[in-house]
Design a protein around this nucleic acid. Structure first.
Lengths: 322, 322
DNA sequence: GTGAAAGCGCTAACAG
DNA sequence: CTGTTAGCGCTTTCAC
């Protein structure tokens, strides 16, 4: 691997001049510039990012901390971050926290040890995460949890919940089951609250059940049959599709007997059968915008503190025509 | 951020000793060790990886180059790589090539500029990719393409194709449509060859169609109806699910009228309706093993050159009981 | 056992 | 406009 020294020698100038030329900082004569570029070409020189980072104390790496990249929703977020980063000469290292506080903190430390420029994370669970990150000096954008300390970007989960409920009410559901996600997460909480707020002012009966307790298919099935549930709101598409499969497997027709609404609008919601009515969340965009925001911050420019992205209902075949 | 100097001062020793203590290289008195550890604790010191890398010329970062992490199969591979890396103190930066030669080469360069220890990639398309990487000095493990230059790890795609065909033959299909993937990729090619090899020695009629040409639903539907296709082999699950949805949307019953077999066994194949019969590929394991192999190589230990992982049929409801 | 010193490849004053 | 020089934080000879 040729170094800046080799280029300097090849071009017959000093390393400082080569450095200036590469960073277009300070003056450098047109002719010298040419010589340098030729030398770079000849040697196939590529600057060593590690050395650069050691000096500047800020690498071009962005740490992305997500609960689990296997979840198609986060996959898309990651893709958005990656594309945006790539477009601006940044790179991203991904960490899966599995919602484990220890792992979360560890990743933050790791990012820090690598002089990452900034970190984009979903809602963090470890104590005082925001201050912890702030102390490292890394910029931080949080997904799905608005706040005053950090910048954030989130979909309008409350509205999403409202739309889910409204959709089922519009389609004559009488007894709705709301399968809620982990309420420690702001996003799931707001989805639930949005839905509940609508049911409260309607005559529709509803009950909330925690998704993580629904490990047992039979139990859920019994509940649905016993209570004559005719509408189900799920906190994400993965669960919705799983529930639909289970129901159909037991002869329950969707949407004739039970209507189902998901949340996220992952790719497969369109292709599963029946296709899933759901709330579209702009996952890719969330990642992209988050990354762009972060990079703006890194340039010491101001940006909006908390960005909220709109969501909307995607009507498919797991609900009846209205 | 405290540096090694701060620790040295706090502990009343020289930086060299601190370094030795941290890397447990060379001798260091038990008492000094204690003092140093205390200092590290007190200052909450974390070694700067960038500086380390600059010296050693090998970071603890692994570059992972995949076509597209949005594909659930690759997502799982990535997850496997990440977990294995994490377990050994490595970290991974992901690059999505979108099967674009330019992007591929760019990522390789990027990884190199960051002194990545090694790279794990799916089959690369740019010219002479293997030599190009080899010249950088980075270790390289390739997914899904065996070869003599590089180490590799792949599922037994040929066997997978065989199993797909056998499955349909066993279930009385008379006219099978094989939807093949991009034949530039070894994996897809072998899947196809495996299936075809079986059909050739059977009386079953079959035709191969390229999946990338099937953009038009209507055209595919017409083809299937006109030719009385009663079995479809898909080169991956995503396509299979898509095809099933389309068929059902047009009133075709699965598996009664048409039976479908996928490849990959992504999570949703189990939950879609009907659930998809498919070939299980150990995606997570592929990523995990690839990463472990790479790390072994980095320790200058020998490993198997080309690893082949077994696949098997997962019987679900998109095919009839035999 | 421990410290002094050189240097990894690069950038940014500071002179000239 | 260009070169000299001093580090960035760490590891590793090489003396002591």
């Amino acid at each position: 691997m040729p170094t800046i020294k080799d280029v300097a020698r090849e071009a017959g100038v000093s390393v400082a001049t080569v450095s200036r030329a590469m960073n277009s900082s300070g003056y450098v004569h047109e002719d010298t510039l040419k010589k340098i570029n030729r030398a770079i070409e000849v040697l196939n020189y590529q600057p060593n990012e590690t050395a650069r980072t050691l000096f500047t104390k800020k690498s071009k790496i962005i740490g992305l901390l997500l609960p689990d990249i296997s979840n198609p929703f986060f996959t898309l977020v990651a893709r958005g971050v990656e594309d945006a980063a790539s477009a601006k000469g940044f790179h991203v290292v991904i960490g899966n926290s599995d919602q484990n506080k220890e792992k979360e903190r560890q990743y933050v430390d790791t990012f820090n040890m690598h002089n990452c420029a900034g970190i984009i994370s979903s809602a963090l669970m470890f104590d005082d995460a925001e201050h912890y990150i702030r102390k490292t000096g890394m910029e931080h954008i949080m997904l799905d949890r608005t706040g005053s300390i950090h910048h954030s970007i989130a979909a309008d989960h409350f509205k999403g919940g409202v739309l889910q409920a409204q959709c089922l009410i519009d389609r004559q559901c009488r007894r709705v089951l709301v399968i809620e996600g982990n309420q420690q997460f702001n996003s799931f909480k707001q989805r639930r609250e949005g839905a509940v707020s609508i049911f409260k002012q309607s005559k529709v009966a509803y009950e909330v059940m925690n998704g993580e307790e629904v490990s047992n298919d039979q139990q859920l099935l019994d509940y649905i049959k016993y209570n004559k549930v005719d509408g189900i709101i799920c906190y994400n598409d993965l669960i919705a599709i799983q529930v639909m499969g289970m129901l159909q497997h037991h002869g329950v027709r969707i949407p004739e007997e039970v209507q189902v609404v998901g949340f996220d609008d992952i790719q497969l919601s369109e292709y599963c059968y029946p296709s899933l009515t759901t709330i579209h969340q702009p996952a890719y965009l969330i990642g992209k915008v988050a990354c762009e925001q972060l990079i703006t911050l890194l340039h010491n420019e101001k940006t909006e503190q908390n960005i909220k992205l709109d969501v909307h209902l995607i009507k498919r075949n797991s609900t009846r025509s209205v």
